[in-house]
Design a binder for these strands. Structure first.
Length: 845
DNA sequence: TCTCACACCTTTGAAGTGG
DNA sequence: CCACTTCAAAGGTGTGAGA
């Protein structure tokens, strides 16, 4: 305690005063008051000695600086409100320019921060978290929390080895048993409380070491998640039919430097949550395999081994945390998540909402439900992970598959200008088509004796569409608002409009799919979601549920096998054309695409996966990695979270929290010691008390998502994500991953010594979507009670709109143009080229 | 394979208008 | 005040040329 207290320091930013200890802080700020632009420049010069932690230790000055700064707007500020940066090196610069929208206007925020760090001999800064709290667009208050003494040895361990020198630049870091072990969960709230208080009084810079140290000593129990009322979350993918439609053709997602939204948008609807309990909903995108692809001969083929994986982030839904009732009342939309191939924007950091992907690689979005009323508890909470195989995609910088392009154009409202009815550059296509069909057209004209503008324009397209671009349509797309709606869509849809609104669209899309058959009888249209949910389960799961239970009973706990054991076949499997991909997924993993519990047994994690985690291959064989046998922790690093919501203030405290968690990420503890009781662990030789604690707490591995791209591990990989990532990525390769496990109850304080299950990440895998009607009907087969993927609402809307869709087609025949389109659609249906492409557009006159 | 400017589109929110 | 309309700006699309 005393040691910890000695670490504390206080300093006022405004006065550039270093008050105590050997901490010197100099900060300059500029705050132009004009307009809504806020320019903040900070320079921090620190000479630090970590008294408490370093007492009795000689720490070489050859240390590395890992600065993680979280920029957090005030909770009342509009989203996006959190930007998380990780910096390493002597000088780091933060700069961000972002336009935001608020209730009144859009504001630009430019934050520029630079740190100059000069470590004194025998000094090290283990880890720092810089939390900027911005009051409002004009920034009336700001504060920084600086937590200087959280030991940091996770990624550095790997990094050091990567650089060819011995890792332990934090050798045998021993803390007093009572000492400054940082227990992440206890830190955030006090820190944020102080931050918020500071924010009230204007710019303020304070070190919260003392408070943090005090917080460290909180009883572990305070970090325990509250007693949970049993819940049974079910998640179903919205616009599933659309996803399936894209999936059938081998979905591609364009990634750009500035970030591109996903289309179809990733939206889910949750049920079965505890209404009163609070949940945090997250999404991330993980590599589906370790292959690089190329589009050759109109098909996606494996083009080699995957490039080093980009740092992955968890995107926390901006509304998090919210009560189960709130979540269930709306569609959870992650449309703000953007895909990019740019690890840093022009300002040198990654947008908080961007997820970095590698082009020509396959990815799998995942959805996580975490029951926690506080972001700070995230690392200690249960992760329920839901994977919808139909949502996987290949990231591209430019579309490769024309069919996908056409689908996007036809369904994405923002691409309306490229539809045949538009005047965009597709006119050129028209001209091409016109040229190629000129003779036919002229012949028709001659036969008809008179020319019809519309028909003259349509005829070529009809043929063109049939011939080479079945998706070409002159008919408007479904109501795409559903697929590209705003935040409020959740609420709007929740009113029940969702199904009605979404239904027709879905039905239009799915009318001709095999899945549609499954939905015909659904009576749930117009019913409250829960009802429809139930009914769908009765129906949708009548078969699937049986299957589910069967699966439950017949399947064994999943283990993620090391990818190194993959056969050449496995590697080749991804080589497919779009349908083949589908097929492959089905054949390999589809049967296994039941709600999936993934045992993240490190013993099964091979180099490939570790590689994905960013560890140098050479490290994967180290003892360190062999200690994960019991389970992978949920290592959550703030920099991994993309948070757009106002809740972000809470995340400010996550820095230390997560850092502390990560402390345990890399440890030298062997499995045996881990298997012992916590008390026993305290005495584990060679393992500092705090590390032991963290091992207990998180049993974490820390990883550098940057992989070998960067010498420094910029961020941690959430173990949860990593584990499930491995799981999900393995899903495609390991048919036996379909085993069903109870959801993972991850608690750092209740070690599942002999029951690895308890620390397992539960991954619910929805069964492969639609294309495999033989497998699971509509594609989602709930297997695990906790992870049932309910597609009821879609089923409902589906069936209900099937008829409406077909009915709506008739009126269109009044117009000749529409008739042509109609014919075109019918032809497509008949030909089966693009059965899902029909766009009856019932609302059109 | 990637980047960029571009045209075209939707979305958003402020301003204006009328009851 | 409220509801509605109008307008402009922001921002999301795919395209296609060029690197």
């Amino acid at each position: 305690m005393a040691a910890a207290a000695r670490c504390s320091s206080e300093f006022q930013m405004c006065e550039n005063v270093a008050k105590q200890r050997s901490v010197k802080v100099e900060m300059n700020k500029e705050r132009p008051s004009s307009g809504h632009v806020f320019h903040f420049q900070t320079q921090v010069q620190r000479h630090m000695e970590i008294w408490g932690l370093c007492e009795g230790l000689t720490i070489r000055s050859r240390c590395r600086w890992d600065y993680t700064a979280s920029v957090i707007t005030h909770p009342t500020a509009p989203p996006p409100s959190i930007h998380t940066y990780t910096h390493m090196g002597r000088v780091a610069k933060l700069c961000r320019s972002e336009k935001r929208s608020s209730g009144a206007s859009r504001q630009s925020v430019l934050l520029e921060t630079s740190f100059r760090i000069q470590p004194a001999p025998n000094t090290f800064v283990a880890r720092s978290w810089m939390n900027f709290l911005m009051r409002d667009p004009v920034i009336q208050g700001s504060s920084m929390a600086y937590h200087p003494f959280i030991p940091h040895r996770g990624p550095e361990f790997a990094m050091s080895a990567m650089l060819g020198h011995q890792p332990p630049f934090f050798p045998a870091l021993a803390l007093p048993p009572s000492g400054s072990l940082s227990l992440p969960g206890a830190l955030g709230k006090p820190i944020m409380d102080q931050l918020m208080g500071a924010a009230e009084t204007g710019l303020h810079f304070s070190s919260l070491g003392h408070q943090a140290a005090a917080a460290h000593l909180r009883p572990l129990k305070t970090l325990e998640p509250e007693e949970e009322v049993e819940d049974d979350p079910k998640v179903h993918l919205e616009a599933k039919e659309l996803w399936e439609l894209f999936h059938k053709k081998g979905t591609e997602m364009v990634i750009t430097k500035s970030g591109r939204r996903m289309f179809p948008p990733f939206k889910v609807r949750c049920t079965g949550l505890d209404k009163k309990a609070k949940y945090i909903l997250l999404m991330d995108i993980v590599a589906a395999d370790d292959c690089r692809y190329k589009f050759h001969n109109s098909r996606w083929m494996v083009a080699g081994k995957a490039d080093p994986e980009m740092p992955k982030r968890m995107y926390i839904h901006p509304d998090s945390p919210a009560t189960g009732e709130q979540w269930m009342s709306k569609v959870v939309n992650f449309h703000k998540l953007k895909l990019t191939n740019n690890i840093s924007d022009k300002h040198g950091f990654v947008s908080s909402t961007n997820t970095i992907l590698n082009s020509m690689h396959k990815y799998q979005p995942r959805f996580h439900i975490v029951r926690a009323n506080d972001i700070l508890k995230l690392p200690y909470s249960t992760f329920r992970t839901y994977v919808f195989p139909e949502t996987d995609f290949i990231a591209v910088t430019a579309y490769q598959n024309d069919k996908i392009t056409q689908l996007k154009i036809d369904h994405n409202p923002f691409a309306k200008g490229f539809r045949d009815t538009g005047n965009g550059r597709r006119e050129k296509r028209k001209q091409l088509a016109l040229q190629s069909m000129r003779s036919y057209e002229e012949q028709q004209k001659r036969e008809n004796g008179a020319s019809d503008d519309s028909s003259g324009e349509q005829a070529p397209f009809k043929c063109f569409g049939q011939a080479s671009s079945p998706a070409v349509s002159t008919v408007g797309p479904p109501h795409l608002k559903d697929f590209c709606d705003s935040d409020e869509d959740s609420d709007d849809e929740s009113k029940d409009g969702h199904h009605i609104k979404d239904g027709p669209d879905s039905s239009k899309i799915s009318t001709t799919t095999e899945d549609g058959k499954d939905h015909e009888a659904s009576p749930a249209k117009g019913h409250p979601f829960k009802n429809s949910d139930t009914s769908s389960r009765m129906r949708d799961s009548s078969g699937s549920r049986t299957e589910k239970s069967q699966a439950d009973s017949r399947q064994s706990p999943v283990t993620v096998i090391s990818s190194t054991t993959r056969s050449a076949e496995d590697l080749k499997s991804p080589s497919l054309d779009p349908p083949k991909t589908d097929e492959c997924s089905r054949s390999i993993g589809k049967d296994s695409f039941m709600p999936l519990s993934v045992q993240t047994d490190s013993a099964h994690m091979g180099h490939s996966h570790l590689h994905n985690f960013g560890f140098p291959t050479g490290l994967t064989g180290q003892q360190f990695f062999n200690h994960l046998g019991s389970a992978h922790p949920f290592l959550l690093h703030p920099s991994q979270f993309n948070m757009g919501g106002a809740f972000s203030n809470m995340a400010a405290g996550m820095g230390p929290l997560l850092a502390a968690v990560s402390t345990a990420g890399v440890n030298t503890m062997d499995t045996a010691s881990m298997a012992s009781s916590p008390q026993g662990l305290t005495g584990a030789p060679g393992l500092p008390f705090h590390l032991q604690q963290h091992v207990l707490a998180s049993q974490g591995i820390a990883m550098s998502p940057f992989g070998s791209l960067f010498p420094y591990p910029y961020t941690y990989m959430a173990a949860a994500a990593a584990a499930s990532s491995a799981a999900s990525s393995s899903v495609h390769r390991h048919p036996f991953l379909n085993a069903v496990r109870p959801r993972l109850r991850y608690s750092p304080y209740s070690l599942p010594m002999t029951v690895p299950d308890s620390t397992l990440l539960t991954t619910a895998m929805s069964s492969m979507a639609g294309t495999g009607a033989d497998l699971k009907g509509d594609g989602i087969v709930p297997v695990s009670p906790g992870v049932t993927l309910d597609s009821t609402s879609e089923v409902t809307s589906h069936s209900s709109t099937i008829s409406s869709g077909s009915v709506s087609m008739s009126p269109k025949t009044c117009a000749e143009k529409d008739a042509a389109n109609e014919l075109q659609s019918i032809q497509r249906l008949v030909s089966g080229l693009d059965s899902n492409q029909d766009r009856p557009r019932s609302g059109s006159p």
